[in-house]
Write a protein that binds this DNA or RNA. Structure first.
Lengths: 116, 116
DNA sequence: CCTCTATATCGACGCCTGTCAATGTGAGTG
DNA sequence: CACTCACATTGACAGGCGTCGATATAGAGG
């Protein structure tokens, strides 16, 4: 019953009287930055490129280790980051793990830039 | 240093495809990764957002320090990174420095993803 | 001239990240 | 069951990056 409406509190936020100014919020920026962080490494960009150009749209780790001239654990590390970012899909068949592009993931990421 | 615009340049091209593999080359990946590195920070994303939404499409440092809750040297540091990446334009008028979006820079960056 | 304001630069600190060597796991094979 | 192969995980190290305080520069004004 006590009117706890916070009608005009606006904590420390203080959108500084910018009526109709949809600037990026702190948490929103945090999430989007993490997405770009996944793309902010040359080896990860090359991984995406190789997977995209691979036959059938998928590639296993053994095919990705050589062209990058990196150790196998390092490649697995980068692949995990790309999977966690929602850019790659992992499917284990038998002994091998096949990685493929998540459909539309790159396009959606590109849209984030236009929607800034 | 190393202030070269990464967006829109496409230098040398090097015509890699060494063994008929149309994947991203190492140097090319390095440059594009540096572009995404400029976007891989929440505060820099918010800076771009604020500048884009600002009146007249430009804002000075004093307008950017408050909403980010960061020190002035830190904001200048981030702005320099965005300018070096070719995303922001800096124009000094009198005592103030006005930053504005480079036209088409975000769109060209988005195209890099589709062209992976 | 001097001072004040707005911005850039420098130096240092702590955290995050990319890399590798070593090891763990789990499926296939003899 | 023992062994091997493909991949993931761990621990450790070096380098990069974000942040701040202090300082430098440059323009406006008295």
């Amino acid at each position: 019953m006590t009117t706890q409406q916070i009608v005009e509190s606006t904590p420390a936020e203080a959108c500084c009287t910018v009526s109709g100014m949809p600037v990026l919020g702190a948490e929103e920026a945090q999430g989007k930055a993490q997405l770009f962080k996944a793309l902010a490494d040359p080896n990860r960009l090359r991984l995406l490129s190789i997977v995209k150009a691979a036959d059938g749209g998928e590639a296993c780790v053994c095919d990705l280790t050589e062209p990058l001239d990196l150790g196998q654990p390092t490649v697995s590390h980068h692949l995990k980051i790309l999977v966690d970012a929602g850019l790659l899909h992992r499917e284990k068949r038998g002994t091998w793990a096949y990685y493929s592009l998540v459909p539309g993931a790159l396009e959606r990421t590109a849209d984030v830039l236009s929607a800034l």
